[in-house]
Amino acid sequence: MIVHSIFFYFFSVIAIFSSLMVITSRSTINSVFFLILDFISVGCLFIMVGAEFLGMILLIVYVGAVAVLFLFVVMMLNVAEQKQSWFIGKKSTHIPTGLIVSVLILLELLVVVGGWKYKEDVMSSSTLILSNVSNTHQLGLVMYTDYILYFQLAGVVLLLAMIGAILLTFRERVGVKKQSYINQISRNPSSSIELVEAKSNQGVRVDD
């Protein structure tokens, strides 16, 4: 048990420290690296409480895909280092927005956790929660029976978000040459080589 709690404090201290570093570190790249560290330690905490599936999915989705894209964007845009720390800056608009969002999240968490703790019928799963089945099976059993509608709705929302993002960034570019694989593969000498008699001082006009 002692080892268990040592590991718990180890991971939670790292998680809290790195989440503080995410918002206070000056270099944006370092922020992203600390965010990754935060994700990893929270994933380890998930695994420690026995939610191995959630922990691994957190690693795969957030660390393996989402954070890579964050890093990618930050590196590509070459975001300049923040000149002033948020706590010292005069015209900081971040703090009120951040406060509103965090207070809202805290309230939501209170409602959800409080309701789940003190009112038994809030968690209204009619599927039996079995203890001898692995974590992954249990999740599947609940998700695809009682909550199938919400599960599918979440999928539809994600799909809509994806289509929306593509639509927002899509623009027709003019003057761009496109590669056509069929044409490239089906080229042969007779259709692609032409013998031209070039006149002196006039040259040959190539239409492109």
Partner: peptide
């Protein structure tokens, strides 16, 4: 011999990109 072995493998191999980046 963990329950989610294949997910672990997948997660670790997807983290491999960080070294390169």
């Amino acid at each position: 011999d963990i329950n989610v072995g294949i997910l672990y493998l997948f997660a670790v191999s997807s983290l491999g990109v960080y070294g390169i980046i």
